[in-house]
Design a protein around this nucleic acid. Structure first.
Lengths: 199, 199
DNA sequence: TAGCAATATTAACGCTGTTCATGAATTGAA
DNA sequence: TTCAATTCATGAACAGCGTTAATATTGCTA
């Protein structure tokens, strides 16, 4: 029956939304089955009628965050004609999202998230950031800013570099200030983009 | 009295060693005050006579791992005269340590480690890897492999890139195989090292 | 309206970190 | 050596956790 399915999906959404709300406001460390159920307006055991376990619920929340990030990235518009600026803005927006929502970074990369359940794994795309920036890099090739055979390695290095910066910034021993983070992001991109080996 | 201090330090060591052992064998998720105390041969409440709380104890264990890593890195010897090979071996050893001890990576970068207690913070050096590799990069400058004014940015990029790779590899959604990890490590280093801008 | 199926709930279990009162052991002085 | 004082190890207790099973309540159909 379709109605049943709809109702079921609605209640699942109540739990997922309650989860993302708690993560954003209080951080992933403060999530608990009882708190989520309370915020959703149900008893704690009811969650297990809609999700196999907490990890299952958490991964659905993770999907929400990943989609939100994709939304943020897709709204980046070109400020000028310089593809390098577009590229920089993309990475800045990516980093900025996590700086404004540190709880989300902790949740996606550092929390007690186990392996994703099968149903979620199917919906998991490979890195949103990578795909988004590949298009911009393609444009850099068109503008002869980088050589064509450098497009892939440059994309990989930038991708890895950005996540390394985030990891260092959010590491328990905070050895990277926000200012230093953005400085490195900028200079590193400049450095790598000037690395075209035409030959 | 010195004897007291010695005895106290010994018992602290029992707890720390029990902690690192459990982390290595079972992973940071399985650490608990009661398990550590059991392995150390004391009651769980005794820990609080020697450490302010679990976070305090965990950070002393973290110091042990960081020192072990420094030990590993210091044993890297030059395979040939090519400083780039030395550099690569350093990063490979760094990555390899975490691949062989994934629990340690999870513990240092992804676990529930809170902010370090004051006493520990004083003993925390900035990135062991960075310092170690700065020397090798200096040699690269001497061999005219990279320009002098590129030494610092290249070091930063390599450092960030390596940690980004580790983060992606150990992320909950594992989108990076071990083979791909080492491939990227190699090609990225090659790419960046060829990026000298003499001007 | 009665009965059945689906769903929500409470109780319970074995964990967790932490605190506190208690008891044992060790030390230093008389 | 004996006694007092101090240090230190300990188990009980507390509030919280994820999860399961049995129970209560709801909603639908005949």
């Amino acid at each position: 029956m379709n109605k049943k399915e709809l109702q079921r999906e609605r209640i699942r959404r109540y739990f997922i939304d309650a989860t993302t709300a708690i993560i954003k406001s209080q951080g992933p460390a403060h999530i608990s089955v009882r708190k989520v159920a309370d915020a959703a307006g149900y008893s704690y055991a009811t969650i297990y009628n809609y999700f196999s376990d907490l990890n299952d619920l958490l991964w659905h929340a993770a999907l929400d965050f990943i989609e939100e990030m994709a939304q943020v990235l897709s709204q980046i518009r070109k400020p000028g004609d310089d593809p390098v600026d577009v590229l920089k803005n993309g990475y800045r927006a990516y980093v900025n999202y996590y700086l404004e929502n540190p709880s989300v970074f902790f949740f996606l990369f550092r929390s007690q998230l186990g392996p994703p359940p099968e149903e979620v794994e199917e919906r998991l795309q490979s890195s949103i950031l990578g795909k988004q920036q590949a298009l911009v890099l393609q444009e850099c090739v068109s503008h002869s800013i980088i050589a064509e055979h450098d497009q892939v390695p440059v994309g990989e290095i930038l991708h890895d570099m950005v996540h390394g910066l985030l990891l260092m910034y959010f590491a328990a021993r905070r050895e990277l200030s926000q200012q230093e983070l953005f400085r490195r992001l900028d200079t590193n991109i400049d450095f790598i983009m000037q690395c075209t080996h035409r030959g």
